[in-house]
């Protein structure tokens, strides 16, 4: 499998999900923050997909089963706690991954060296919100804990070996867990105890098997391009 395609799809799909918050976030500053993070991810996706082929063709003309993103990033935004839990899990992972990639000499090193600086801000954003929601009101704590638990079963896939990648993903699992546990501890939250993968989520996204909401997300993302091929403004 093409590693640039897999990482590019992760960034593209999460960018699209975060973009759905535009105009819907709880406060204006958060609207701006989530869409800025989406923009960073979109920039990373464009670079990664362009290493593989034509970025527009790849983004707008593939069917769901041709996407290689992990299932975590395609999960719906849910409530704000769901979005933050997804951000926390993914940004900590992406910072570790890009950090390790940047230190190697692979084709992806220049992008990783650039993007790791952006992702540091994303991770910080997710951490700050995790602290506020976890150590906030009874209701915010309850919802954040629930969101962490709901998404936990998609986290195992992040660390499945990825062919062609200059980084051993399984080796990132322990540091990832340690960092997540650290943040959750400070936020008075508990690290989920259930299985971090299921029969349907263990490496499935990387093989083109996606969860049901992904098709609807893709339909919205690709509609314009498919209805008006080559449209530009």
């Amino acid at each position: 499998m093409n590693a640039a395609l897999a990482l590019g799809d992760d960034a593209l799909v999460l960018a699209q999900r975060l973009g759905e918050w535009a105009g819907n976030a709880p406060v204006l500053e958060e609207d701006v923050a989530l869409t800025n993070i989406a923009l960073d991810l979109l920039g990373q996706a464009r670079t990664l997909l362009s290493l593989t082929g034509d970025e527009d063709e790849l983004a707008f003309r593939r069917e769901a089963h041709e996407f290689r993103n992990v299932q975590l990033v395609e999960q719906p935004n849910g409530d704000f706690a769901d979005t933050i839990a997804r951000q926390l899990y993914f940004s900590v992972y992406q910072e570790l991954l890009y950090g390790a990639l940047a230190e190697g000499g692979s084709e992806l090193a220049p992008l990783a060296g650039k993007a790791v600086k952006e992702v540091a801000y994303h991770r910080d954003h997710a951490e700050q919100w995790t602290l506020r929601l976890g150590d906030g009101t009874e209701e915010s704590h309850r919802r954040m804990q629930r969101a962490l638990g709901t998404l936990w079963r998609f986290t195992g896939e992040l660390f499945e070996p990825l062919e062609g990648l200059a980084v051993e993903l399984p080796a990132l699992h322990a540091p990832w867990r340690e960092r997540i546990a650290g943040v959750l501890g400070r936020a008075t939250l508990e690290i989920p105890e259930g299985a971090d993968r299921t029969a349907w989520s263990a490496g499935a996204g990387r093989q083109g098997v996606h969860t049901e909401p992904f098709g609807r997300m893709l339909a919205e993302m690709q509609y314009l391009h498919r209805a008006h091929p080559g449209a530009s403004w």
Binding site: L96, E127, Q128
Partner: peptide, 10 residues
């Protein structure tokens, strides 16, 4: 910069 701003550990 991000770590400094947020007191982050990562």
């Amino acid at each position: 910069a991000a770590g400094r701003a947020g007191g982050a550990t990562a």
